[in-house]
């Protein structure tokens, strides 16, 4: 049987310039994003559905959606 690799979109944070404000956390419908020790936002790949809500919300615009092979 042929294995079909699914492509899915995931949020990615550019940590170096993340303000750790947590605005992204408040809007994520899947609880996939947390602020790690007040330093930067970290996305949990197994929860992120790539909906892009955090991307729209992030005031610093440091989140992007990128395609990953799952």
């Amino acid at each position: 049987m042929k294995q079909v690799k699914k492509r899915k979109r995931q949020a990615k944070v550019y940590k170096e310039e993340c303000a750790a404000c947590g605005c992204c956390v408040l809007v994520c419908p899947h609880d996939a994003i947390t602020v790690y020790k007040g330093l930067y936002a970290a996305v949990d790949e197994s929860f992120c559905m790539g909906c892009g809500k955090c991307v729209k919300e992030c005031p610093a615009s440091v989140i992007t959606l990128s395609e990953v092979t799952a």
Binding site: K37, G38, E57
Partner: peptide, 25 residues
């Protein structure tokens, strides 16, 4: 002009608390 919580990007309290977290970690 920008996103609703743009202030949080350069808010001095936010910068200060992040700095404390950096030092602590």
């Amino acid at each position: 002009f920008f996103k609703p919580r743009s202030w949080c990007v350069y808010c001095p309290m936010g910068t200060m608390t992040q700095l404390i977290c950096r030092l602590k970690s």
